[in-house]
Design a protein around this nucleic acid. Sequence first.
DNA 1: GGCATGTGCGTTTGATCATC
DNA 2: GATGATCAAACGCACATGCC
Length: 366
Amino acid sequence: MTLEYSQDLIGRYQVEMLIGIWSRNNKPLAERTINVRVETAVDFLNWAADKGLRVPMSIPKIQRTYTSSNLHNSFGYEFKTVATRQGKLRESKRHLGFPSTEEIAAWYTRLSRRPVRGITEALIAELILETAIRREEAACWRIDTLPLAPADWRIVNPQAALEHQVVLVDLRFGTKGKEYGRDHDDKIGPTGTIRLPLLLARKLHLYRETQRAKSLALAVRRGRTVVEQKRIRDETVHLFLKPRTGTRYTGDNIYEFWRSAAPPKGWSPHRARDYWACTLLWRRMERQRELLEMALKTKIDAIVLQALQSNVLSIIQLEIQPQLRHASQETTMIYLQWVADQLGINLNLHERWIAELWEGAEEVEP
DNA sequence: GGCATGTGCGTTTGATCATC
DNA sequence: GATGATCAAACGCACATGCC
């Protein structure tokens, strides 16, 4: 028997994954997972055909039309047609939702009040919340990621009020992307520069000189000889050390303490990245929101929506993307979606508005 | 509680191609 | 050439489970 694409891979394997037969808990797998698995099966069968172990398998292609964002025309979108594998599932887009500020604050208080570990772990959480760095990047944060001498800190806006000043910090350990080697068990990834609030930089500096020094002393004491003790001291390059053992935090450790302080539903280190982006967007949008509310009271029109969309996109591109570093366009667009959800309106990405504009355009140009 | 392991996604890069 | 789309590949994150 020779496997065939439409009947076996799509008609059987894919259908069974959609029913839930292939999952651990009998629940249907996500479209994303199913597409990846079918493509892996296709790859394998193509490889077998190349080796002469089976006849070549034909993969039917179909044309699909979608609306892509295009900021260079007056509509902000355009229709495009692509050839795609027949049977490929449409992958559902993520919709963001967050716990309330009060729930997050209560979780943070629980975290910080825990004996012994509270100070260090609340600081790691604060770093993630304030800078939107990834879990792994926090774990790999070195003792000198923030230069040891405050005089060497690169402050972008020294004339601004203290609470608004930010320090530029380069990250290269544990960053996502191409790997350039290893260092103390950490991946050396692409270098990226982030903005760290000055007041938080001072907290990190204080931690470095007080609590970290205490934690490190615990680890050093385990060395039996002076030489061994010196080696432990020299090899400990990470900033955040566990207060009970003096060893570094790993990404898994961060996830573990984050979740062990009874977090609100779905609240995770990675979700904190989205939370950072959305709260910044919401603050920057304050004035635009007032204008929109006035517009909504009368009649919502395409020009107001287009201006709003343009503002959101510029905040995403100028402030959010650089801080999140190399986030793809598609990923950052979930923030545009989030704003639309919060305001209860349809922005560019929503079919209804596109359809309305389309109808409007047709009326003008019959 | 801490750690290891496995499953099920989610995110990013780089190659490639089409269009302006 | 710049831009922006797709896809595959690689790898990070979330979460469950089990062991000590």
